[in-house]
């Protein structure tokens, strides 16, 4: 056999005799079969066709589909909470996250409402009706079998707010924005979604609203139907996933939004009223003696020397006379006035 190989290698198969050629071919086939069997046993098909190299390409990459971790505990609690009709919404910026701890969340909610930072909240209460669409099972007929569920149809809810054109004008600042939305139901429970975020090198559970885009609409009254103000919330494609990590708890009280206020001239020089910037509603007497010099600035950025609240006339008196404005919600809150926010408008007092 060695000789045959030697001879045939020298001149190739052309120079071999027929008998030797047959023997050489048989031997070659035997070698090929042994190599194929080895490649098959190692699972390396590429190696089989490439003639030898092992562990190439086919073992790279994984598509993880592990259903073994799923465990549905389908028992019913004694008092299962069921989300009720929405009584209010709290709008936040897309990146805003909050504590999942109910006490911490409730302690900080007022600060978030008056804040101008990334965690700012815009509460919208007095929702009197919800008209939802979508959110139901979405199926597909494509393929050889019958319909199969492929997710849910996009969820959108039209919330009707019991308010007027002043709120409409304020809400238009949020019109068509992608935001996050917490729902507050009629039982006073707040609903959002929980996520895991890195915090100080470790994982922390955070609470945030549902990803959504909002649209503000108003329909003026006519002979049959009254005025209507709507906030349309279009939940994102993430909605079903966000519902899987639903998080909610009871609020002690429903948060209220803040009202933009400015100064209006009073009955005489140096006298003024604090009124809402939109409707002119007078807030001076509501907060009375709580008004302080630190809550106002003149057009040079200076506080007045003194501000006097007169309980008889319900007016404020400023010294010296100048152009003044009401400071922002943070400054008012420091003085014990919550719910108002000065607009950037000076009034000659």
């Amino acid at each position: 056999m060695k000789k045959i190989l030697k001879d045939c290698k020298k001149g190739g198969l052309i120079g071999c005799r027929n008998r030797d050629r047959a023997k050489f071919m048989g031997f070659s086939m035997l070698i090929l079969l042994i190599v194929s069997a080895l490649c098959y046993l190692t699972g390396d098909l590429a190696g089989m066709f490439a003639g030898g190299s092992i562990n190439v390409a086919m073992a790279l990459g994984t598509v993880i589909a592990d259903c073994s971790a799923r465990n549905a505990r389908t028992g019913r609690d004694n008092c299962p909470k069921k989300e009720d009709g929405t009584a209010g919404l709290i709008i936040t910026k897309l990146s805003a996250t909050y504590s999942t701890d109910p006490d911490t969340f409730k302690d900080e909610i007022q600060a978030h409402i008056i804040s101008n930072g990334v965690d700012k909240m815009w509460p919208i209460m007095n929702i009197i009706n919800n008209e939802g669409s979508g959110g139901d099972s979405k199926t597909s007929d494509v393929g050889f079998s019958g319909p199969k569920p492929v997710g849910i149809n996009p969820r959108g809810v039209k919330y009707r707010i019991d308010a007027g054109d002043c709120l409409y004008k304020e809400l238009m600042e949020l019109d068509k924005l992608q935001v996050r939305v917490f729902r507050v139901d009629q039982e006073g429970y707040i609903y959002g979604t929980a996520i895991i975020r890195k915090s100080g090198g470790s994982d922390a559970e955070m609470f945030r609203g549902f990803d959504a885009t909002i649209k503000i609409t108003r329909i003026e009254g006519n002979g049959n139907d009254p005025y209507a103000l709507y906030i349309d919330v279009y939940y994102s494609a993430n909605y079903e996933k966000e519902l899987k990590t639903l998080h909610g708890f009871e609020l002690d009280e429903l948060p209220e939004g803040i009202v933009g206020v400015k100064l209006a001239k009073g009955s005489d020089s140096g006298k003024a009223l604090v009124v809402s910037a939109c409707s002119g509603t007078d807030y001076t007497s509501i907060f009375g003696e709580q008004w302080a010099a630190t809550m106002f600035l003149n057009d040079g950025g200076q506080q007045p020397t003194s501000v006097t609240y007169d309980a008889e006339t319900n007016e404020l008196t400023f010294t010296p006379t100048a152009n003044y404005r009401v400071r922002n919600a943070l400054a008012l809150d420091e003085g014990g006035i919550f719910g108002l926010d000065g607009v950037d408008e000076f009034t000659s007092i």
């Binding site: 009375g288 003696e289 008004w291 630190t294 506080q303 006097t308 309980a311 008889e312």
Partner: peptide, 17 residues
Amino acid sequence: MKIKIGLKSIDISDSLI
């Protein structure tokens, strides 16, 4: 700092003082 005189409550700017 507030001064109460009758029905008037006068707040004097602390920074001024």
